[in-house]
Structures are given as C-alpha cells and as structure tokens.
C-alpha cells in the first residue's frame, strides 16, 4: 500500500516524513523537494513521474542513501537512514538497496558474471556460494548462458538484465530503478518491464522506479507524480484513492 500524505507512524517498509532537499547554486537556493511524505509497503511497485527537474532522481538518491536531505526523515525497515554516517550508509546500501541505472553502468572490463558478483564481494560468502548466487541471479534475468560475455558483447537489453541481476544478487530490501528503459527500444523496454514485474510478483521485490515513459509507468502498481517538489497522486493506481493521497 502506498501513501503520500501520512505524517504519523506506520508499519510500512519505507517511511518518508517531511522530506526537504534544497540545492545552493551561487546565491540562489533551489528547493527540489518540499515536505514530502511517503509510505511504501513491502512488495509495492511504485513509479515516479514528472517533468525534468521535478526532483524524481533526487528523491531516488535520497531513498537510496546516496544523498542526504536538507530536512526530514527516511526510515527503511525501521532503520532511520537520514542521520547515518557516510560509512554506515554505505554498509546499509550494500545490504538493503539494489540500483538499476538508465545507462546500466556495468564495469566494461568485467564479464557479466564478475559484474553481478561485485556486491557479493562485500559479503562473507565463499567463492562457491558467490558462484551459486550469481548463477541464480543471471538465470532469473534469462542470461544464464552469457556469464562469460563482456558488456560490449551484449545488447542494451541484455546489459540492463545484467544490471538487474547485479541489483538483486544480494537480495536487497528494495530496488531503485532510475529510468531503467530510458536507453532501450520499445521491445527491449517491454522485456525489461516484464522482468521487473516478475521480480515483484514472483519474488516479492519492492521496486521504486523513476520514468518519463507513461507506458512504462503504467506497469507499476502505483504511479506518483512529482510536481515542483511535491508528490501528487497519479492517474493510475491499483489501490483505492482516498481524499488526501493514494491509499
């Protein structure tokens, strides 16, 4: 269940309260997010839409612990991340967040296997355990036979699949996808979205996704719009909409 106006306690997986983000450019202050509230439950699939500069990526960065808010709080599975030190936040990201980027961001000199293995290098898993996890993740994304291929030997859609395998291999609490289909043709984009839907439906993953594409957004359970730093309910939701937010 997704809510954008709750400012009290809840038992949601992700809780955002009064989130503000202001950037300073010379003497100018740019307020990107203004008092944003959000609750996302486990297994939700949320799409954030909005025009360029509306703060979608900033929100994703804050939720992923890549940036710190000017004010407000973010809790994930009861962990308050807003006041964590940089080191703690890095450890937290390794355990809880899987990132999928628009441009895949694979390491070009590593094979698909080695790229997917990267997050597991931070764990205490043995080499054989890591191999098992990587093979499972690559088979989930349908690339079990491409383990030795380098990114340059894969298509865009396949690269993004490897990136998704890297994001899920350590079984994170939730996935953050920043325009995951932005660099893909329609067919590949459909395949990637089908894969993400499968991760949500079959594997119970929680996915928060930023997209410009209404067709892609429509495949999420909930679509939220960011306009001038404020979240507003979307036009499509599987959930019932009540006054004051999407519930």
């Amino acid at each position: 269940m997704v809510s954008v106006n709750n400012n009290g306690n809840s038992s949601s997986l992700i809780q955002v309260r009064g989130l503000n983000k202001t950037y300073h450019r010379a003497d100018e202050q740019i307020q990107v997010l203004q008092g944003l509230n959000l609750d996302v439950d486990k297994g939700d699939f949320v799409a954030f839409m909005g025009p360029s500069g509306s703060g979608k990526t900033t929100l994703l960065n804050l939720l992923g612990g890549l940036d710190v808010p000017t004010a407000g709080a973010i809790s994930v599975a009861s962990d308050e991340i807003t006041h964590m030190s940089s080191g703690k936040l890095t450890e937290w990201r390794a355990r809880h967040v899987g990132f999928v980027f628009q441009t895949y961001n694979l390491i070009p000199v590593l094979t698909a296997f080695q790229n997917v293995e990267l997050p597991l290098l931070l764990t205490r898993l043995s080499k054989s355990e890591r191999r098992q996890h990587v093979e499972t993740a690559l088979s989930i994304v349908g690339l079990g036979n491409r383990t030795r291929h380098f990114p340059r030997q894969l298509s865009g859609g396949q690269e993004q699949r490897v990136a998704i395998a890297r994001a899920i291999v350590s079984d994170p609490t939730f996935l953050l996808c920043d325009e995951p289909t932005g660099d893909l043709d329609r067919k590949s984009a459909d395949e990637i979205m089908a894969l993400i839907e499968e991760l949500v439906a079959k594997h119970g993953k929680t996915v928060l996704m930023v997209t410009h594409d209404p067709v892609v957004a429509a495949r999420a359970h909930t679509v939220l719009h960011l306009e001038k730093g404020v979240l507003v309910e979307g036009s499509k939701s599987r959930q019932s909409v009540t006054a004051g937010g999407v519930v």
Binding site: T90, E91, R93, I107, L118
Partner: peptide
C-alpha cells in the same frame, strides 16, 4: 569516475 561511483553506490566503502 562513473564506475567508481557505481562501486560506491552498491556498497564499496571509500
């Protein structure tokens, strides 16, 4: 730079 940023994003410490 981008690759190092990705490494840090997925949990590699400074």
């Amino acid at each position: 730079t981008g690759e190092l940023a990705v490494l840090k994003a997925i949990g590699f410490k400074d």
